[in-house]
Design a protein around this nucleic acid. Sequence first.
DNA 1: TAGTGGTCTAGACCACTCC
DNA 2: GAGTGGTCTAGACCACTAG
Lengths: 259, 259
Amino acid sequence: MANGEAASAARTKYQQIVDDLAAQIHSGALPAGGAVPSESELMERYRVASGTVRKAVSELRAIQLIETHHGRGSFVRARPPVQRKSSDRFRRAHRLAGKAAYLAEAEESGGTPAVQVLFVGPVDAPAEIARRLGVAAGVKVLARKRRYFRDGTPTEEATSYLLWDVVKDIPAVFAENPGGGGIYARLEEHGHLLAEFAETVRARLATKPEAVALALSPGAAVLHLVREAVTDDGRVVEVCDTVMAADQFVLDYRFPARD
Amino acid sequence: MANGEAASAARTKYQQIVDDLAAQIHSGALPAGGAVPSESELMERYRVASGTVRKAVSELRAIQLIETHHGRGSFVRARPPVQRKSSDRFRRAHRLAGKAAYLAEAEESGGTPAVQVLFVGPVDAPAEIARRLGVAAGVKVLARKRRYFRDGTPTEEATSYLLWDVVKDIPAVFAENPGGGGIYARLEEHGHLLAEFAETVRARLATKPEAVALALSPGAAVLHLVREAVTDDGRVVEVCDTVMAADQFVLDYRFPARD
DNA sequence: TAGTGGTCTAGACCACTCC
DNA sequence: GAGTGGTCTAGACCACTAG
């Protein structure tokens, strides 16, 4: 090391910069929403090379203290309140009242929701999806891919896969907006009464494309949900694959203790 | 870009290296558990500078495809089969059969489970826990903290908080091993019939102490569960706070679509 | 156009592991 | 001691944002 510091701390330079900036954020010296000094300014201030500053900044981003925007700068993160996803968001009463699940949720969490439909059309069912739908891999199914926003920032991306036989006579599910109550309401109107949902939950780090789609820093955590919609006669008619920004959600489940 | 490739992909060099190595891992050309070529070898092979290789390697680590060990090398992660945590793991039938929940689970996932009791004794209820238990913050409750292992590696750490009034006359819940069926069986034997569980799920990155406790690389994802046990008379008698290594678990929930 | 972050180079030196 | 990953330098050039 070039300088003659005590070095007893045994900390690396970039870690010292991380700690220093983190302390400034927690103390309020760098207020939430405000700009972090630019990388070139940090290079001067801490007398280090660009790579060192970048590593520190990247660390601060990984622990979600700041967010960086190419060409604009880095900013102290103002943590938005989390959304709750409660397991009764799919209640039939909500569907009858004309609400889609995401709206039933958003109502309670206070943000302004938005949906962007990315794709609606036939696709060859991926192996994992086909298995859950009880069809052969590669069979034609209807895919509906959309991205959800809250207050303008993307929060989750979901793809629904529906059995072609089930939906081919339901024009509304091919539309961008399937109408009040969402696709589940349309399915029930056409005699496919839903009995239960089975949801599997995983957590992992975002892949690069996911990080881009959800405006996350690479290395941020995501929740990965796969939900099956099961009808009265035991058939899985829909599988919904959802990737959510982990810091935006809390999932709620209740289940009986009895047999 | 130096080479005369189509370049329509507009991908960066390090991303190309990530994609290439990821493909080799998924195809089995780089077998699970095996060594990844050293950074200097990757520099030669891809004709790039050290920093570029390091960025690619760091990305692969973030996505959990490899793990790196200082001085030894990088290795393809041997993903152990994940454990399923299904919401019926707390069925009364399991308790009557003398199984604790974690054993009911482990049976199906094939690993050898182990539990280490870290602490059993009275503590002042943390604010969040007290709120859920319906008592004032700082009130004395019984805490049971333990760490779970599968095949020798730590997978989760859980702390149960129990109302003191409820457990003070149940000696078994103060023991390291509360006996067949776990503490829930003891509670029911003493007239506290459980009606339902309410579970909240979050995902986030591991803190430093969590990473140490669960032998995770820093920046790994964890699942954070908080579960309330509710009795017949609507009282929350226990709150269990659990942090799990995200790559070890899949959570399963089923819930009715009807009202 | 000036300023910002993002990628990349071609090295140096250090810390750790294994033989 | 040879080989590995980890930190750091002092630049270059590119891509994006804003005035």
